[in-house]
Design a protein around this nucleic acid. Structure first.
Length: 418
RNA sequence: GUGGGCGUAGCUCAGCUGGUUAGAGCACCUGGUUGUGGCCCAGGAGGCCGUGGGUUCAAGUCCCAUCGCUCACCCCA
């Protein structure tokens, strides 16, 4: 086969597109009910936006972005994450002047050139929310609870909320040195990648999966011990509100996120139903991002969740099923009938019914089989006989009963069936 | 970028230690009388056995390479 979809991309085929649509519409509903408004930003941005926002040393920026120079010499990048783009728009459009708090959500496709595996694609879909403007812990708690509730209401079982605070940037600077001081004497026990990170980004060593490293880290000093007074008060309040909301969480002092902009609260929701890529959702507070992208200092919190992983983790039985709508199948027989058929079909469709016809000019037998396969409950049959009498046959497929109806009373007849 | 597993019909897979015209189930199409579905029955279509090379009298089967898929490392949603 000559052409196939690019590695790490996939087609959403008709048999699953409904599932996507249902999940998306549920998310739209839930988020607007919570007072969040949708924002859509372009699929590509200036490369520098992500370098500055996400961090030049992060893996995402340093080796996973789809970037190119366009014909005008501009360095562009397909969005590898949404937050930087939303914040750029927030600043550019002065959303702060409309309200001191902007509650935004998004649904869209992102691009990262990673090696594909279960739950990880090069073009993938995320939804997420950003609350820009509040520094208070109840905002953190709300964000976390929205994420948690959406996932559990979608019927995903075995979800766990992991929570941590990585403190303010000053706290982190202090802790960073303490961690380095702890790891240096154990340098030989570190993996290659951790050795490399020791200077560039030692905190990332904390969420290693390497068993011997994990053991070593059990004795490592925890970041939560070094939080400033204010960090700690904030963190305690977040936990208290989550308790008030009855949202179970696990404190995970090794939870350090990969994007550089996070401050204080970080969290992640994982599911055992996934493979190695078990994070359904991740997020946290980013109090410095707006400023570092050129806006006024504005505290913010948000999260992002991956659609592919949600669909993987969703119980098929808990699928949000579409209400059974009555389908009508129009059977036309013979050439003389076509133009009348098209006309009646249009009228019925305009009246709001679900109706389709056979564009292959197949036999009545085939058309009835097709109607049956599609799960139609009614067929309307129009052949030469009916043309002479200016009527159609309306057949109920479950009972097999069939009655004729004159052209001008088809819609009243259909209405009487309800 | 590194490693493991796997590539036979649209889908899920058989094909024993290399040996005749490559099979099944599901799906698809047609028919079971002249214009009536589901069930059933009969028939049909559909395969460069991923690709290229090698070993052999003989390769879907063995070897090498290559491409693709997949899982894991890594990273993250």
């Amino acid at each position: 086969m000559k052409f196939r979809s690019i590695k790490g991309t996939y087609d959403v085929l008709p048999n699953v597109s409904n599932k996507w649509k249902n999940v998306e519409s549920y998310i739209h509903q839930h988020l607007s009910r919570s007072g969040y408004s949708e924002i859509r930003t372009p699929i590509f941005e200036n490369t520098d936006l992500f370098k500055r926002g996400v961090g030049e040393d992060s893996d995402v920026v340093s080796k996973e972005m789809y970037s190119w120079i366009d014909q005008g010499g501009t360095d562009l990048t397909l969005k590898p994450e949404y937050t930087a783009s939303v914040v750029r728009s927030y600043i550019q459009n002065n959303l702060n002047s409309i309200s001191p708090i902007s509650k935004l959500y998004y649904i869209g496709d992102l691009f990262r050139r990673e090696r594909p595996q279960k739950g990880r694609y090069r073009q993938f879909r995320q939804f997420g929310i950003e609350a820009i403007g509040s520094k208070y812990p109840e905002q953190d708690a709300e964000i976390i609870s929205i994420a948690y509730n959406i996932l559990s209401e979608l019927g995903i079982q075995d979800i766990t909320l992991n929570l941590n605070s990585i403190g303010s940037s000053e706290t982190r600077k202090k802790y960073r040195q303490i961690l380095i001081d702890f790891l240096k004497p154990n340098y030989d026990q570190l993996s290659e990648s951790s050795k490399n990170r020791l200077d560039s980004n030692p905190l990332r060593i904390l969420d290693t999966k390497n068993k011997s490293e994990m053991k070593l880290l059990e004795k490592a000093p925890m970041i939560t011990e070094y939080l400033s007074n204010e960090d700690e008060i904030h963190f305690n309040e977040v936990q208290q509100y989550l308790n008030d909301l009855n949202i179970p969480f696990i404190l995970d002092t090794n939870l350090v996120r990969g994007l550089d902009y996070y401050t204080r609260t970080t969290f992640e929701i994982v599911s055992s139903k996934l493979g190695a890529q078990d994070a359904l959702c991740g997020g946290g507070r980013y109090d410095n991002l707006v400023q570092s992208l050129g806006g006024k200092p504005t505290p913010s919190v948000g999260f992002a969740a991956g659609f592919e992983r949600i669909l993987l983790a969703m119980d098929d039985e808990n699928e949000l099923v579409e209400k059974n709508i009555k389908k009508i199948y129009f059977i036309g027989l013979g050439n003389e009938v076509k133009s009348t058929m098209i006309k009646i079909l249009g009228e019925i469709r305009n009246a709001g019914y679900y109706i389709e016809f056979d564009p292959l000019r197949r036999s009545i037998k085939s058309q009835l089989r097709e109607a049956n396969k599609l799960g139609a409950s009614i067929t309307i049959i129009l052949g030469e006989k009916e043309m002479e009498e200016q009527c159609v046959q309306i057949k109920d497929l479950s009972s097999g009963n069939q009655e004729s109806a004159p052209f001008d009373s088809i819609i009243p007849y259909l209405k009487s069936l309800k």
